[in-house]
Amino acid sequence: MSVLELRDVVVRFGSGAHATTAVDHVDLVVDDRSVVGLVGESGSGKSTLARAVVGLAPLRSGEVLLDGQVIRSAGKRQDRAVRDRGALIQMVFQDPYSSLDPRMTVGDSIAEGIAAGRRLRDARRTVGGLLDLVRLNPDHEHLLPRQLSGGQRQRVALARALAADPEVLIADEITSALDVSVQGAVLNLLRDIKDETGVSVLFISHNLAVVRYLADHIAVMAGGSVVEFGDAVQVTEQPRNPYTRTLIAAVPTLLR
């Protein structure tokens, strides 16, 4: 049982008159083996929220809990064991061209994840097994990122994150840098992986149609706050918040 819980999370940048509140008192729960879609436009705070959850952006207040245990809270540096538990939340970034070390082979990158998994919870995964999991040819182990296409790189990034055997995977706009014909394959893959490994997913996207395809629950963010949260079908078919309605109306769908 692993639940990711955000309680009253606030992230601010700057100080004094120049301070901006990127995330404004957000509460959110990602249940075990579920996918929560986080949707919003640029500046809504969705990516900052993701970075705050994994510790890449500082919390001004509030806390992040994994299975009821606080792993991150404002102003307090947690002890080492707790911080190590933080590695059970992994993240895949938007731009596959900058999220892989250009001088490390695919195998070496994934091995860093495997080492983390072994250290933290005695997980025993292999590079070959992980490449297989993300549907990449095992020969790719010895290639450098620049020899791969955008879609392939994103699969490697996914494999590296999964290598740590995480409880929760945060996917931040992982298809927005990819071509249309590649996007679908990565989304299908993420769905298959969720079914195969049981990892919970916080899936962030600006595209409501993409979120709807993957998520069990959807949170809509605007201006740093979650303005609507609910079952995916309910949010997309009977939105209660006017902003959600605007967003749904704006999604470009094929004219049938």
Binding site: G55, L56, R83, D84, Q90, S99, D101
Partner: peptide, 26 residues
């Protein structure tokens, strides 16, 4: 500040190793 260092930090890769394996070569 790059994403791949962020990814390494999320994997709790040690400071020394981040410097040796990621920062120095680059």
């Amino acid at each position: 500040g790059s994403d791949y260092i962020a990814a390494a930090r999320l994997l709790r890769v040690g400071r020394a190793r981040i410097v040796l394996r990621h920062i120095l070569p680059n």
